[in-house]
Design a protein around this nucleic acid. Structure first.
Length: 511
RNA sequence: GCGGGUGUAGCUUAGUGGUAAAGCUCCAGCCUUCCAAGCUGGCUAUGAGGGUUCGAUUCCCUUCACCCGCUCCA
């Protein structure tokens, strides 16, 4: 008893848990670091044989919930949502209109001493006229009188008139060694300005020149906005309705971190809901509820998931309200990380594109004859973040089983729904197992595994989260029944082999 | 982008300025009637590049990746 206690492993810390999840993902072929054999590449990840199945399952469930069987609206009728798959590269003007190019591409400087970061064009430098002593960096918009206090501290008795105010942008790098940062004590701690444009640039055409710069999309949403008119004109949809899109997006993140949580290439599942401005608030609440239900139905529930409203200071300038659905990842624990944002974007995007493209994007309501610019509620989820949350939630330590761990996937999400296992590699077992496998694979993602002893095979399936194992033994030969072994409980029962497909169908039932 | 840490096989760990070791996994075969059993055999590693040295996995430099903290996240 005492000895047993002593050998019981200590509970995992969140960091250890995350490390194990990453190791399992690599070991079993869910997720690999991209360009592994070349030493890797920061911020990119590859999805292995099981990872792509898991990701596709989540993607398909979202598509079904949004496009194929959208929820019932407040009026008792299903809401209307259509799909879209727009190009990753669009006319660069799209990203100017959206604000991604220009407005957010400002160079920043860091202070090595204070670890603070400043926009280069927001800083001025006070240059001493007599050339003596340090140069003083101060905020351009100096409401707090920083310049005065800095001169008092470092100006050696000189007055403000003894300095000339220059923009930091106009000051050469060779002078940075003389500059004291706005909050620093020593000179020379400011880094050279770095541009923080998060959009990936590329060049169109075989001959590269600055005239043909284009951008990889930073979000799938803009592809939806620029097709709003196309969809309205071609699809018989009427406001309110939604357009949904799933696809890759690219951002030059300053600092990719935390496995696939923040990567430079990722996948989004976004839906833009177009509605009358007067109904926007109602639809915002509607989608908040619906989207929360979605993640809960996949098994993310309890204390690990929450809804959080953005504070006023957090809101982007065009949003009149944003809710995040957040998950307690091991690397955020005890905090939470964003899984999906539901944003009320007003008519900002359509208005921007109307102005920049000169194409009228207003909607004419055929019933009321009212002309208006639709407002937008946007549930925008991270597919790859969803995969990570599902993996973290499913990871279950169980020292009572040979593998020591299993992945508790919802059967609808599991990369493999079942494994077909002949108890031995002899006699009729493999023959019957192969027959069952060929039948089941027409409808389900299943594995046939004949090699090695049964315990090893159960353990392997536990580690990849296969919810059911069907085992063929001598009794199967005699009476046509197989053993079902359930992943979470390891319990077994016998059912007729002829009922296996129906059994699986019932268990996997869509969420 | 800043600071700190780590880097030996798929995983977990040894070890050394002079032939790189083990357990588990994995693969092949045998055995096996329900949870990684047993037997035999096999594959696989010092992240990359430079320097010092007769000789570097070990010491030094650079770089890359990952982890932690800050920062960033339209």
């Amino acid at each position: 008893m005492t000895a047993e206690k002593l050998t019981t492993p200590a509970p995992q810390t969140p960091a250890e848990r995350m490390k194990d999840i990453v190791a399992l993902c690599k070991r079993r072929g869910f997720i690999f670091g991209a360009s592994d054999i070349y030493g890797g590449i920061n911020g990119f990840w590859d999805y292995g044989p099981l990872g792509v199945e898991l990701k596709n399952n989540l993607r398909d469930l979202w598509w079904k919930k949004m496009v194929l069987t959208p929820p019932i609206g407040p009026d008792g009728q299903p809401v209307e949502i259509v799909g879209l798959d727009s190009a990753i590269i669009q006319n660069p003007k799209v990203w100017v209109a959206s604000g991604h190019v220009g407005g957010f591409a400002d160079p920043m400087v860091d202070c090595r001493e204070t670890k603070k970061r400043y926009r280069e064009d927001h800083l001025d430098v006070l240059v001493p006229n007599d050339g003596e002593g340090p140069w003083l960096a101060v905020p351009q918009n100096d409401e707090d009188g920083v310049a005065k206090s800095r001169i008092k501290k470092f100006g050696k008795g000189r007055s403000e008139d003894a300095f000339t105010r220059k923009s930091l942008s106009g000051i050469g790098l060779e002078n940075y060694a003389k500059i004291i940062g706005p909050d620093a004590k020593e000179a020379g701690t400011l880094t050279e300005p770095k541009a923080f444009n998060l959009l990936f640039e590329t060049k169109i055409g075989a001959v590269a020149s600055d005239d043909n710069i284009a951008y990889l999309r930073g979000e799938t949403a803009q592809g939806i906005f620029i097709n709003f008119k196309n969809v309205v004109d071609s699809s018989r949809v009427r406001v309110p309705f939604g357009i949904a899109q799933i696809g890759k997006a690219f951002r030059n993140e300053v600092n990719p971190r935390n496995f696939i949580f923040r990567s430079r290439e990722f996948e989004q599942m976004e839906m833009e809901w177009f509605c009358h401005p007067n109904e926007a608030k109602m639809w915002f609440d509607f989608w908040k509820t619906e989207r929360q239900k979605f993640w809960q139905s996949l098994g993310l529930s309890g204390d690990n998931i929450l809804m959080r409203e953005h504070g006023q200071d957090e809101l982007v300038f065009y949003s009149k309200g944003t809710f995040d659905i957040e998950y307690k990842f091991p690397f955020t624990d005890p905090g939470f990380g964003e899984l999906e944002g539901i944003a009320y974007r007003t008519d900002y995007d359509l208005t921007q594109h109307q102005e920049h493209s000169k194409v009228k994007l207003e909607y004419m309501d055929p019933v009321t004859n009212e002309r208006f610019m639709p407002h937008v509620v946007e549930p925008a989820a991270g597919l790859t973040r969803g995969v990570l949350a599902i993996l973290c939630e499913a990871y279950t330590v169980d020292t009572n089983r040979p593998s020591g761990v299993y992945l508790n996937f919802h059967p609808a999400l599991a990369p493999k729904k079942a494994a077909i296992l002949p108890l031995t590699a002899k006699d009729e077992h493999p023959k019957l197992a192969t027959k069952l496998y060929l039948e089941l694979r027409e409808e389900f993602a299943v594995d046939l595994d004949i090699k090695q002893n049964i315990g090893k095979r159960y353990a392997r399936q536990d580690e990849i989260g296969t919810p059911f194992c069907f085992t063929i033994d001598d009794q199967t030969v005699a009476d046509g029944t197989v053993t079902v072994r359930e992943r979470n409980t390891m319990a077994q029962e016998r059912i007729p082999m002829a009922n296996v497909a129906a059994y699986l169908r019932e268990k996997i039932k869509r969420v």
